[in-house]
């Protein structure tokens, strides 16, 4: 039996630090050199890539109803794994399940690294990314049908990604992978970068020294990434958004969302927030 366990899924809700981690891994593989944001090669792209789907379906996914394509995605990943020479890191924004289909089969999964960020800070960043209001962003984070790239008026270069609400997303991955899931909090990456990035390198079983890891962390400091984006652009930035990298701060939600919006997020996501240490048992926000 051929071992197809090749995918390392780098999973997150949008604007939770996924790109930052990918850039760190890229810098690590390239002697801490990061000349352009557009050369990320530590990952083979995003799991929702329409190009990948078309390649392994055999016909263009745009010629099939989206509902069909979603049910075929486990088979697409299996075909993709059959064609991979070795371990491959892939960015994921989908929930682990869609309408009862387990989208990311265990047979092709080596590791899952789930990056979570508190939804209070995410709200303004997500609003900027999607080019809608913060109010709408907060509601989207609470919406069980929330999705990315769903568009029946244009063929997006990504398939629809059904994420569900922020809690649904977390719970789907937790239920799917339980003990095999590596959870990384964005806030810990910000506050203890050496410890947490080192943990990621250990999960990947990559062989890099402490010095190399520290150098790569320095190469992807937020201001440097912002500078690079200003100078050379970033192809992953949505067309109508001014910048991909915005503030990236922890706790800045106090300046960006209202108390009502924060309360709505606490009420909607109480147990997930508690489990991840973002609130205490009284619902007090800890970041």
């Amino acid at each position: 039996m051929v071992n197809l366990k090749k995918f390392i899924w780098l999973v997150s809700y949008p604007k939770s630090g996924n790109t930052w981690v990918r850039l760190f891994l890229h810098a690590l593989q390239n002697n801490a050199s990061l000349e352009s944001l557009n050369k990320i090669d530590s990952t083979n792209g995003i799991a929702s890539s329409r190009f990948i789907a078309d390649e392994y379906l055999g016909i263009e996914s745009g010629e099939l109803p989206d509902s069909f394509v979603q049910t075929l995605r486990p088979q697409i990943f299996t075909k993709w794994a059959e064609n991979l020479a070795g371990d491959t890191i892939v960015k994921v924004h989908d929930a682990a399940f869609h309408h009862g289909t387990f989208t990311f089969p265990k047979e092709v999964t080596k590791n899952v690294i789930l990056i979570m960020r508190n939804p209070f800070d995410m709200a303004a960043s997500y609003a900027n990314h999607m080019q809608f209001s913060i109010e709408k962003a907060v509601l989207a984070l609470c919406n069980g049908n929330n999705s990315l790239a769903k568009n029946n008026k244009r063929l997006n270069n990504q398939l629809t990604q059904y994420m569900g609400s922020w809690s649904d997303f977390y719970n789907s991955w937790k239920n799917a992978y339980r003990n095999d899931l590596h959870i990384v909090r964005y806030e810990d990456l910000k506050n203890n970068p050496i410890e947490i990035f080192t943990k990621i390198v250990e999960i990947l079983k990559w062989n890099y020294s402490h010095e190399q890891i520290c150098a790569a962390i320095q190469a992807v400091e937020f201001d440097k990434l912002k500078n690079l984006e200003d100078k050379k652009g970033f192809k992953e930035k949505p067309t109508h958004t001014k910048n991909f990298f915005r503030k990236g701060e922890v706790g800045n939600w106090r300046n960006e969302i209202t108390n009502e919006q924060a309360n709505l997020l606490v009420n909607r996501h109480f147990y997930t927030l508690l489990e991840l240490g973002y609130i205490d048992e009284n619902g007090k926000i800890l970041f």
Partner: peptide
């Protein structure tokens, strides 16, 4: 060649579109 929806051998091609 075997894709998710397409099979090919020396003389035949089979495309299967669900439903």
């Amino acid at each position: 060649t075997k894709k998710v929806l397409v099979q090919i051998n020396a003389n035949e091609v089979l495309l299967q579109i669900p439903d």
